[in-house]
Design a protein around this nucleic acid. Structure first.
Lengths: 125, 125
DNA sequence: CTTGCAGCTGACACTGATGTCAGGTCCTAC
DNA sequence: GTAGGACCTGACATCAGTGTCAGCTGCAAG
């Protein structure tokens, strides 16, 4: 598959795909005149990359443990990094969960404050 | 409280606090010669702002529903925004949770691959 | 062979939150 | 009143990911 198709199926821009490769997150074969050729696994790989990016990991860090996915061995440093990032992720999830609850509360409040007259009507808003 | 103290208690930099104000996230009284004066509630406010920022909300969006917190009323647009962002947050939490699980798996794999010889020893690694 | 779309590289721009510096002002302690 | 630290504004820098443009090349269809 060429870069345009990969971009379309993953939702990443062509620009981003080249950037991921430049940062060592993604590999490609070059076919003949230098055009990138991707295996079908690349789709999943790109989705994973974007997931990590959305989670706040910089490409530099992602690049460090990406090798785990295809090489058979891992170094102590990689395992350490994975563990640290997993912790970070857990903390982030906890924080977002708390924030989500706070937003629920804010939404409740907001609805109460929407039409003050309704409060006397009853709870059937 | 002045800006230095607020910065110290919240962990935000003085620079960031001024930026939050500039973006409409934070208010301050100006005392005499133009120095910012914060009420004690500002501490909580700043923590909330930073929490939202960490969750990926841009200041522009935060600024839109910040008024809910102190004005007594909310507009339909604000409630809509809150709901949309809560959804976004929920989706983000789900995604991070999945990613976290995937990392757990990666860590397991990584440990297995660490010293291949150990695999024959048994599960007590 | 030509046409034209897709791809290539390289460079510059942008956004958003923050750092940092310069030059000036406030305010507290002496 | 003066020294010095905290604060002010404004500007420029940084980082990461991405957009975008220019100029060139690959490749498939006619």
């Amino acid at each position: 598959m060429r870069i345009g198709e990969l971009a379309e199926t993953t939702g990443a821009s062509v620009r981003s795909l080249r950037y991921y490769e430049q940062q060592g997150l993604l590999q490609s074969q070059r076919s003949g005149g230098g055009q990138r050729e991707y295996a079908t696994e690349a789709v999943e790989r790109v989705q994973l990359i974007r997931c990590y990016l959305r989670s706040g990991l910089p490409t530099r860090v992602i690049a460090e443990f990406m090798p785990c996915l295809h090489s058979g061995t891992t170094t102590a440093a990689q395992r350490e990094l994975l563990t640290v990032e997993r912790e970070r992720l857990a903390a982030q999830i906890a924080e977002l969960t708390e924030l989500s609850e706070r937003m629920d509360w804010m939404i409740d409040q907001a609805e109460l404050r929407a039409e003050p007259a309704r409060q006397a009507d009853g709870a059937a808003a």
